[in-house]
């Protein structure tokens, strides 16, 4: 085969290959949607985060505004310290509250932010003070059974 045709074919091959990689990165993966440069991080303490995982979405009013970038355990207060990376485009008041929510009945867990009314906004490194822990299904069932049992014994007493 002639040298120039061979070079042409190899060139086409390499270009298609790199284009495929780029398509995978941009269209299939989340490289284009999640840019770590344009974020600021805040922390929030939770008594219980349930099944929350790193990279879980952070949503406000249902819109994706950031992701969970780290989960640690505070050994002094025995609470979970969750680091949130929020998109710089979205600023939240200082008295915003964070809660661990579940999408759907069996869906993944995410952090929901409810904006407060403070005039100052959250800055890089701030801490969200108002938090609400995850609802643990076993505890809920336990409470329900307990209250049922209490109801039952009340009736017996009467």
């Amino acid at each position: 085969m002639e040298r120039t045709t061979l070079d042409l074919w190899v060139g086409i091959f390499v270009v298609i290959g790199i284009a495929a990689l780029l398509t995978l990165a941009m269209k299939v993966g989340n490289l284009s949607t999640y840019n770590s440069d344009a974020t600021y991080t805040v922390t929030a303490d939770f008594q219980n985060i349930g099944g929350l995982k790193v990279k879980a979405p952070v949503k406000s009013a249902g819109v994706l505004v950031g992701r969970v970038s780290g989960i640690e355990f505070d050994t002094k207060r025995f609470e979970a310290v969750v680091t949130l990376s929020l998109d710089k485009r979205y600023m939240f008041p200082k008295d915003t509250s964070a809660s661990v929510l579940t999408s759907g009945l069996l869906g993944e867990q995410y952090i929901g932010l409810d904006a407060g009314g403070d005039e100052q906004n959250l800055q890089q490194g701030d801490k969200i003070k108002l938090t609400q822990s995850a609802v643990v299904l076993e505890k809920l069932i336990g409470q329900f059974l307990y209250s049922k049992a209490a109801d039952g014994s009340d009736k017996d007493g009467k």
Partner: peptide, 15 residues
């Protein structure tokens, strides 16, 4: 050198 390019093409066209 060919193998990663072929695998990327396979995945892309599979999607």
């Amino acid at each position: 050198l060919s193998m990663p390019l072929l695998a990327a093409m396979f995945s892309a066209i599979g999607v």
